[in-house]
């Protein structure tokens, strides 16, 4: 089943953070506490899935038929920025408790390479509509997985004796490296 393959590929084998290096800023910035990591992950997954849909539509309904591929970057980033703004307003109105949980992370997502990266990668891979949506969703889940794992580890790290210069970003990156190494083990899963 091709869709299941894409799902596994995007969550594990080609993990957004640990393979494509996308979304490092939130990955390092929001992974100190487990619950904020979960919230960020869900927010990102939500935005990524919508972005997958919208970017596919823009690419295939407007840009490609009119030979305007060079407008990809500009159109994508503008759409993403507006999308995030809209999503934030929408959530605020519809569900204040949800906004409490996710809302503050949304503006952080705009210049997050993860979302733009998703739009660009999806365009590059040239999947059909359904596959693109699955790819977006899977990538979001992969991001969430990475950030939640990282938060779990970092909460423990707080209690460990980390050398002064490495505290914060330094040790986080080293941990990420070890995680990336572990995830490399997922390669070759797809037959």
């Amino acid at each position: 089943m091709e869709l299941l393959t894409i799902l596994i590929l995007s969550i594990l084998v080609n993990n957004f953070v640990l393979y494509y290096f996308l979304g490092i800023c939130p990955f390092l910035g929001v992974s100190k506490k487990l619950d904020s990591a979960v919230s960020m992950g869900l927010a990102v997954t939500f935005v990524m899935t919508i972005t997958a849909v919208v970017s596919w539509l823009i690419n295939h309904l407007i840009l490609i038929p009119n030979d305007l591929s060079y407008l990809q970057i500009v159109s994508f980033i503008l759409v993403i920025a507006s999308l995030v703004q809209l999503v934030e307003m929408f959530i605020r109105k519809i569900s204040p408790p949800l906004y409490q949980a996710l809302g503050i992370y949304l503006p952080l997502i705009t210049t997050n390479c993860a979302i733009m990266g998703l739009a660009l990668l999806a365009a590059l891979k040239n999947y059909n509509f359904i596959t693109t949506v699955v790819f977006g969703f899977g990538s979001g889940i992969g991001f969430t997985l990475a950030i939640v794992l990282m938060a779990g580890i970092r909460e423990q790290l707080e209690l460990a004796d980390v050398p002064e210069p490495l505290k914060g970003a330094g040790i986080a990156l080293i941990v990420a490296g070890i995680m990336a190494l572990a995830f490399t083990g997922f390669s070759g899963m797809i037959q």
Partner: peptide, 25 residues
């Protein structure tokens, strides 16, 4: 080989960041 893999990138940057902070301190 690990240096070319994503893992190497993370670890190297982490160590470099630590070094930069150490020098600053």
């Amino acid at each position: 080989i690990i240096m070319i893999l994503p893992a190497g990138a993370f670890i190297t940057l982490g160590i470099l960041l630590g070094l930069a902070l150490l020098i600053e301190m």
